[in-house]
């Protein structure tokens, strides 16, 4: 069996005295699709921000393809692609220009740029709109363009923070078909978050985080079996409870600060 592509060990991020991520350890294997689930504010985006070098962990280690992500950020950056939770395309450029800029930033050789851009625009079905300004695109089209941008440089792993948020059923289905196709064509691994739990039925493994801590990592089938649940929704509610996170804020976050203060 091949070793893991990504190894996250005892990852911690504190904002002031508050532990947003509290000792997360996790592995991702080449070609694997992992769903990173958790209620609002659980620490998913913060975890992805640390793995993608945007913020520095308070403590813990991250290794991607053998590269120490914290110490050798530049080398690590060449290995992954990322689609952020908030839209991050340049609305004043055309679809093609957005991809071109990205191709240059990632050092794609000039001879391959055009071809790769075409291929990606074809994949996400934006080839007919390639010369239109992105500001004229719908939310779903922008998402697809971001997806194309993230994959264009053939990363070993693509991080997707709620890639299907706000998309209709057809567009969500589209995104999933791209994911499965790219995985089978290039062996790309996917690390994605979603609040649509039926999407978590079709991934290889699910990791559930709550209050900054991982509370379960297993296959969807395994999770359902061990909780005697019929769906991922049921598993999720059993593990994370029925309260809305903002309403629980006092108790839960106090506890999070407290746990940490006690250790000091």
């Amino acid at each position: 069996m091949v070793g893991p592509l990504l190894v996250v060990k005892d990852l911690v991020k504190e904002f002031g005295g508050f532990r947003a991520v509290d000792g997360v350890s996790l592995e991702l294997f080449p070609g694997e699709i992992l769903a990173f689930l958790g209620p609002n504010g659980a620490g998913k985006t913060t975890t992805i921000a640390m793995i993608t070098t945007l913020i520095k962990p308070t403590s813990g280690a991250i290794t991607l393809g053998g590269v120490d992500v914290v110490r050798q950020a530049e080398a690590a950056k060449a290995l992954f692609g990322v689609v952020f939770q908030e839209a991050a395309v340049d609305r004043d450029l055309t679809a093609r220009e957005n991809l071109w800029l990205h191709a240059v930033l990632y050092g794609l050789p000039r001879s391959e740029r055009e071809e790769r851009i075409e291929e990606m625009l074809r994949l996400v079905e934006l080839i007919d709109r390639r010369d239109d300004l992105v500001r004229t695109f719908s939310g779903g089209m922008q998402r697809r363009l971001e997806f194309a941008r993230g994959l264009m440089t053939r990363p070993r792993v693509l991080f997707l923070d709620e890639p299907t948020l706000g998309l209709d059923v057809q567009s969500r289905e589209r995104i999933w078909s791209y994911i499965e196709r790219i995985r089978s064509d290039y062996g790309t691994a996917f690390f994605l978050t979603t609040h649509y739990l039926e999407e978590a039925e079709r991934v290889d493994r699910v990791a559930i985080i709550d209050h900054g801590r991982l509370i379960a990592v297993d296959t969807p089938g395994g999770l359902k079996a061990s909780h005697g649940a019929a769906s991922m929704d049921e598993v999720f509610l059993t593990l994370t409870g029925h309260g809305i996170r903002d309403e629980q804020l006092d108790a839960a976050s106090l506890q999070r600060v407290f746990r940490h203060r006690r250790k000091q």
Binding site: L54, E74, K77, A78, V82, F84, A88, H102, L105, G107
Partner: peptide, 14 residues
């Protein structure tokens, strides 16, 4: 503010 700066910050450039 538009979130686009991150696209530069994660790119493998100095």
């Amino acid at each position: 503010e538009f979130g686009y700066l991150k696209a530069f910050l994660v790119a493998p450039i100095r």
